[in-house]
Design a protein around this nucleic acid. Structure first.
Lengths: 225, 225
DNA sequence: TCGCCGCTGTGGAAGGTGTCACAACCCCCG
DNA sequence: CGGGGGTTGTGACACCTTCCACAGCGGCGA
């Protein structure tokens, strides 16, 4: 287990070495390859996961089989917290988007830590509040923006969080198919593809195999509002 | 201040009488009439609010003036928690939907309580987790359901939480205009009105002045899925 | 009580999006 | 090296939804 990454995470940063040491004893290590899922909608589960490396997508499936992504999360982020405090089954499926390593923490162990170090609960509250804020943002976007606008916004967000510099721009959405991008913005794959094509037309993007390169981030930002 | 309501709220239920007593000293009482707002999008603010009586709508405004409701909350519910832990300005406007009484609690006071009674943070985490769950639900509905489906679901939800028995059904959405209902489901007022008219046509609803009476909850539930 | 303003009800035109259909492409595996 | 399945690209069409226009309706205040 890569202790360093955990130690630097805000959630654990305030812990004393002794508490932190005891905590790491309790962690479960989980390794996943692309497409493997940690848990599925409807599962029981009382484990909180911390992403050490890789990416996880949180998705929901409608009765008719259509899918929809709530979020794509990266290293240092948490998921599965809701099951800890709201005793319903998982309401999303967590799937690895790339090679991913997780650290799992069971409910009872987290509870022990919270009672001894109230600072941890403040960190958890912050993490949940941030997620809620992001989700509210997505909700507003779905109501107010058209598909191209949402695609632009999603690309900018992905660039912020996972983007890698390329020769002439920022490499984004590597490891994400257009299908997944479509599910993330709540639209059909075809419509998203057409939006991307239009952006390429205008010279704002360049498409690569399973990736997008942002060329004109200004215009893209403008279009997203 | 109506201490009884506060005492029974899950957030404070676990507190000892001494801590609770000290806490109530710190509470600010706020009274609002319909249409008055507690805070607005973009405001700074570090106060958590507890609804003693009445209803509050949480809404966002797009640059072009269109509005969208994130939630309608009733007695016993909390709002404004995000500002406590995520130090950005308010990302929603809170407005009274009816005569409303609130109890406000400042950040520093809540923090004191959390440090002495970790149980409170668990309650807060639960409240946030529930809200996140609801928001995720709305997000999925926006993607998967058409307007009539979302209207049906919203009515059922409102009935669950605020419904009052009527002679031949359940009285819902009193104090909510169709405009507000539309903003809640993320659709135009006209489309919502037509959906309602169709439900009336089928005998599932009856419309009254600024209110809806649910007559056939079964069919409505079926339509919502 | 009258008038007014906000809420409700409805129709039709215009536009965005989903669905369907199919072709091209590419990487991976046999 | 040659399929083949998954991914990407693109057009046509139907449908849902918004937008616009306007007509009742009703409650509240002057």
């Amino acid at each position: 287990m890569d202790i360093e990454v955990l130690r630097r995470a805000p959630l654990f940063a305030t812990l004393g070495d002794d508490v932190f040491g005891a905590l790491t004893e309790e962690l479960t290590e989980v390794d996943l390859s692309r497409g493997a899922s940690v848990f599925r909608e409807g599962d029981q589960g009382d484990q909180l996961y911390f992403i050490v490396s890789g990416k996880i997508k949180l998705g929901r499936t409608a009765p008719d089989g259509r899918e929809n992504l709530l979020a794509v999360l990266g290293p240092g982020e948490l998921f599965g917290e809701m099951a800890l405090f709201d005793p319903s089954p998982r309401n999303a499926t967590a799937t690895a988007v790339s090679e991913t390593r997780l650290a799992g923490l069971r409910h009872e162990n987290l509870r022990k830590v919270i009672l001894t170090s109230p600072e941890v609960s403040v960190q958890l509250l912050q993490a949940l509040a941030r997620r809620l804020r992001r989700t509210n943002e997505s909700l507003a976007d779905l109501v107010f923006s058209d598909v191209p606008g949402r695609v632009a916004k999603a690309l900018l967000d992905l660039a912020d969080r996972f983007g890698r510099p390329a020769t002439d721009g920022i490499l984004v959405a590597h490891e994400l198919t257009q299908e997944e991008l479509a599910q993330l913005v709540g639209a059909s794959r075809e419509t998203v593809n057409k939006a991307l094509a239009e952006f390429v037309q205008r010279g704002w993007l360049r498409l690569e195999a399973r990736a997008v390169v942002i060329l004109d981030i200004q215009r893209l930002r403008q279009r997203s509002r």
